[in-house]
Each structure stands twice: as C-alpha cells, then as structure tokens.
Amino acid sequence: MTRHTKNIDAFVAASVSSSDHIVKAYLGLVAVELILKNDVGLKGHNVPAAIDKFAHLFAIGHHQGCKIKLNALVAQLRNAITAITVQGKDGNPCNAPVDSYPNIRYVRHESDSWPAPFTSEEQAKVLSAKVLEIRAYLKNKFGKAL
C-alpha cells in the first residue's frame, strides 16, 4: 500500500499546473520523496540517495537495465540541484545542497537582480526538466504514481 497517496497526487497536480520552473521542480521532488519514503525508508530530503537505494533494491530481474538509467538520472539530478544558487543560512550565496533539495526555496533568481552568483532561468529549467524525467521514468518503468 502506498502511503501519502493524496499528498503525492496533490503535489504532482500542483507541479504540472505551475509555470515556474523552481516551483515545478520543488513540488515534483516532494512527490518523488514521498513515493521513495515508502520504498527505501528515506528519512531526510536526500532524493538522489533515495533513488540510488531504490535502484539497488528494485532495478533487478526484468528491471536490471534500469539501474544504469537510474544511476545516470541521479548524477544529472545531483548536478542540476547543485547548479541552483541559494541564499545560505549565513546570508551568503551557496549551491543548493544535494542532500536537502528544500533549500531551493531560497533560490537567488537572476531576475531578482541578485549579484553573482545567482540562478538563471535556464538552470531552473534544467532542474525542472530533470525532475520531470525522473518522475516519468519511475512511473513508466516501475508503476509509481507520479
């Protein structure tokens, strides 16, 4: 039984309806996190590590080839998350931590006239697209409600 089904559905729907790339990525990552909590016992917000563990546990048998693809998606997701510049707790810019995607809420958007470093619209778009690709892969290959 999948727990948090209503929450997952709500975050997916909100992600699909948003036109903002950071919002789409954030809400999509929440949905992936909730799905993976059930499968791998994820305790924090390290979605890439959870996907790694998921691949190790479930990309076997007739899904064996999926492990390579999931590993590639994880590497790309890590890069996309850390490419996002956020406002750190100390008030200085820093890369979003790969083990805590919720920090992307504090993105330093180029359009807000932050001094460099900041996050470009293209970087936000890359993250959003990668999250969407991961959601689609988990749904199509493993039947996850994403």
Rank of each mutant, 00 (worst) to 15 (best):
Q76L: 09
A124D: 01
G91E: 12
V86T: 08
H21R: 06
Q64W: 10
A72Y: 07
E122S: 09
H63M: 07
K144P: 00
E133Q: 14
M1A: 14
D9R: 14
H63N: 13
L127E: 02
A31G: 05
H56Y: 13
N103A: 11
K67R: 14
N92K: 15
S19L: 09
K130I: 06
S19Y: 04
A136L: 12
G65D: 15
N95W: 05
K6P: 01
K141Q: 12
N95T: 10
G28N: 07
G28T: 07
K139R: 11
E122W: 03
Y101L: 02
L36Y: 10
I60L: 14
F118G: 00
A31C: 06
Q64H: 10
G65H: 13
A55K: 10
A124T: 01
E122T: 12
Q64T: 11
I22N: 00
C94F: 08
F54R: 02
K144M: 15
F54W: 08
A145E: 15
N71Y: 04
N95H: 13
N103R: 13
C66Q: 13
A31H: 04
D90H: 02
A116E: 07
H63C: 03
V74A: 06
A72C: 04
A124V: 01
R105P: 00
Y26G: 04
H109V: 00
A136P: 00
H63K: 14
R135S: 11
P117Y: 03
L70E: 09
K6S: 14
S17E: 14
I51N: 00
F11D: 13
